[in-house]
Amino acid sequence: MKLFSLIPVFVIGVLLLWAGQDFPKWGDVESPASKSPVSSHFIANTGVDTEVPNMVTAVLADYRGFDTMFETVVVFIAGMAVIAILRGSSVGRPRRKDHEVEAEPDLIVTNTVRLIVPVIQIFAFYVLAHGHVSPGGGFQGGVLMGASFILIALSWDLEKAMSRFPIERCLFVAAMGIVLYGGIGLLSMMLGGEFLDYAELEKILPVSREMARYHAMLGVEIGVGFTVAAIMFVLYANLASEGRLKQGL
């Protein structure tokens, strides 16, 4: 069976290699992707359109902001699906004991984490907020934020982390993230533009059209960050405890 399943792998591999024969050269400026007016527009006009120095952020959050919204929704769905599947699924099943260690949280670990978590969280905020200028943005910031809570759960136990960030609140925050993102889109639609046309926000913000886009992008990144951070923690909490939300690893 294992050998049998290798066949499609090889077929696809050969196909992919064969497709490479008329690829553009690596890093070729003449390649269609680089030469196309779309790319040139991104390179030349991002700053003009949105005042955002980091093109990637502008493309993700503005030019293709609709994709990003649904990617955030995908993350949200993943969290909900995991809850939906795991909640109540382990009722009546005995908990496995083979790797459980009965021990107090280790002093050195907890103290280190105590020190490091605030730093991670501040860094997460930095990544999120500074995404306009440097690499980073809502996804990365959110993941970092979620990771900080997971770290707490790893070093103490799940209950300790959940006392800071209960699962109900997680879901609320995650939903709020989407409401924030979609809300900004809806608001700009209500103000007379198309959905996610942030420039229309100039009507309520005391800034130019370009800066309205700039600020709205920050808004949606925060929404993404909310959802991602909360859902990352939800995923971990549910998976680590088979949906019981107790004890964890």
């Binding site: 990544v127 690499p135 980073g136 993941v143 990352m232 998976l239 690893l249």
Partner: peptide
């Protein structure tokens, strides 16, 4: 760099943790 950052946080970070937890 953006993609690399995401890969580092999500791919190498969170995914591994979630996989191990499972």
């Amino acid at each position: 760099v953006d993609v690399a950052f995401t890969e580092a946080t999500v791919g190498a970070g969170i995914s591994t943790v979630v996989l191990v937890a499972t």
